[in-house]
Design a binder for these strands. Structure first.
Length: 468
RNA sequence: GCCCCCAUCGUCUAGCCAGGUCCAGGACACCGCCCUUUCAAGGCGGAGAUCGCGGGUUCGAAUCCCGCUGGGGGUGCCA
């Protein structure tokens, strides 16, 4: 059975890089008809909060990721203790009474002498009476894993290929902190093993951890899973994508008006491309059936907000249903202070969805449909203050009074006005646009007349006649 | 410093594993034209990569091998 998992720590919003890791891990499991586990890694009590966890789960759901099993490491502490005990008994781990200060000093010393630092391992060989003394004083201690000498740990990474690391590069590492909580490298092994994880898919920043974990798998007699390390996502400056680069959390994009399926689709294409097609727009189902780890790139990719934006535009204008779009759009309208009737919004969206790329841009572009009072730009004022504009508007009102208004009617009327007043089409439309929207650019005037209620249109024009 | 990973248009990438069909294909962004009541969208076209550099192997290398350089990551009682 194929089992993959996503194991975030609840210390902030869901980061784009983690989101992509989650997506790949999810697609992999679904592709193989396997199981996808969500495991919250909250053993770091200093930084983990339940609020962040809630956000994380919400963001994952919003993205469209659903998991088959859910675990929280803080609820499995007894289990980890059991395995710590096993490692102690089998001589794979030992208590270490060194203080942070002492260790810090050793590290600085190594730094100064220009030699690579690794823990000396001095607590490996404590004399029995020394140990007794510490116990008697209840001196706090950590538990360290005993790293064997000269061992070359080798594994075949599903993305990176053959990787060999000499464990002499690191000293005995801590698996249980002095406050009794277990550390990442240890719990990740216990959990992955116990949860039957067959494929560990995670960021490449975990490659250096992998040999440590393999050592623990072996010490505990667990079966070693397959590893797949995804390349990192970079910012424009080619350093690891972080807050410095601006909006980097899923939440940011959600709030800016990106659709979850567009973000999902875009993130998939960062570091992966399906073989045998040059298409780029895929449904989740298609992604599930196309996804293969073999097609994941081994080199890091730069995140391009430009391209995400374009793709979001594709989803807005041609992928999602109008109903969906309306549902997504209304909260944005409301947040901008407009009250909206669903049927009306739907009529607006139907005609205009091909003209904006994010929902917040949509609000900007479409607010002319919802404002009570039109605000005029300087250019629009200039147009309306022209004497000819008055004739155009009066004539328009006159002609409109005998008929209802829709796109075709408005075009007819504009043409008549143009002929009767000897104007260029452009001039007529400009005046109408300025009166109706207060702007010289934006959605087509015919569309506006098609969608907006007749009395509102007439109102706006009469208003202009009154004040200009 | 030490360890590890990576290297095709500005960016995402195809091609690399099974060397010739690649004077390198697609997408975003960019530029131009068309459409047009404006801005977008859309249509058409253009520019853009001596396949990081240097050696090999080979009749032939983006593709295989070695070295170098550059970039990234790790080096915690964070995950």
């Amino acid at each position: 059975m194929i089992v993959s998992r996503f194991a975030p720590s609840p210390t902030g919003f869901l980061h784009l890089g983690n989101a992509r890791t989650a997506i790949f891990s999810y697609l992999f499991a679904r592709h193989h008809g396997g199981k996808f586990i969500l495991r919250v890694e909250d053993t770091d009590r200093e930084r983990s909060t339940r609020e962040f966890e809630d956000m994380l789960l919400e963001d994952l759901k919003w993205l469209g990721l659903e998991w088959d099993e859910f675990y929280r490491q803080s609820e499995r502490l007894d289990l980890y203790r059991e395995y710590t005990q096993k490692l102690m008994e089998s001589g794979h781990a030992y208590p270490c009474f060194c203080t942070v200060e002492e260790l810090e000093r050793e590290r600085e010393e190594a730094e100064r002498r220009g030699v690579p630092y690794r823990y000396s391992g001095k607590c490996r060989v404590l004399a029995p009476q020394e140990l007794e003394e510490y116990k008697r004083l209840s001196k706090p201690y950590t538990i360290r894993f005993k790293v064997p000498d000269g061992r070359l740990v080798v594994f075949e990474d599903l993305i990176k290929g053959h990787i060999a690391i000499n464990v002499d590069d690191f000293g005995d590492f801590v698996i249980v902190r002095s406050d009794g909580t277990p550390t990442y490298n240890f719990v990740v092994v216990v959990d992955d093993a116990l949860m039957g994880v067959s494929h560990v898919i995670r960021g490449e920043d975990h490659i250096p951890n992998t040999p440590k974990q393999i050592l623990i798998y072996e010490a505990l007699g667990f079966q070693i899973p397959k590893f797949a390390h995804l390349p990192v996502i970079l910012g424009e400056d080619r350093s690891k994508l972080s807050k410095r680069h601006g909006a980097v959390s899923v939440r940011n994009y959600r709030e800016e008006g990106y659709l979850p399926e567009a973000l999902f689709n875009y993130l998939c294409l960062l570091g992966w491309s399906p073989s045998g097609t040059e298409r780029e727009i895929f449904s989740k189902e298609e992604l599930v059936s196309l996804f293969r780890l073999e097609d994941v790139n081994s080199s890091p990719a730069v995140f391009s907000k430009e391209k995400l934006r374009w793709m979001n535009g594709v989803y807005i204008r041609e992928v999602v249903s109008t109903e969906r779009l309306v549902e997504e759009f209304i909260p944005f309208l409301e947040r901008a202070g407009f009250s909206a009737n669903k049927e009306y919004v739907k009529r607006v969206i139907e005609k205009t969805r091909d003209s904006f790329e994010t929902l917040s841009e949509g609000v900007e572009r479409l607010k002319v449909f919802f404002v009570d009072r039109v605000e005029f730009s300087e250019e629009a004022k200039a147009v309306l203050e022209n004497e000819k504009s008055r004739h155009v508007l009066e004539l328009f009102l006159d002609k409109a009074s005998q008929t209802d208004l829709n796109a075709q009617k408005v075009k007819d009327i504009a043409k008549e006005i143009q002929r009767e007043l000897g104007l260029k089409a452009k001039d007529v439309w400009h005046v109408l646009r300025a009166s109706l929207t207060g702007q010289l650019e934006g959605v087509g005037v015919d569309v506006i007349c098609d969608v907006m209620p007749r009395d509102r249109l007439i109102d706006r024009i009469e208003n202009v006649l009154k004040y200009f």
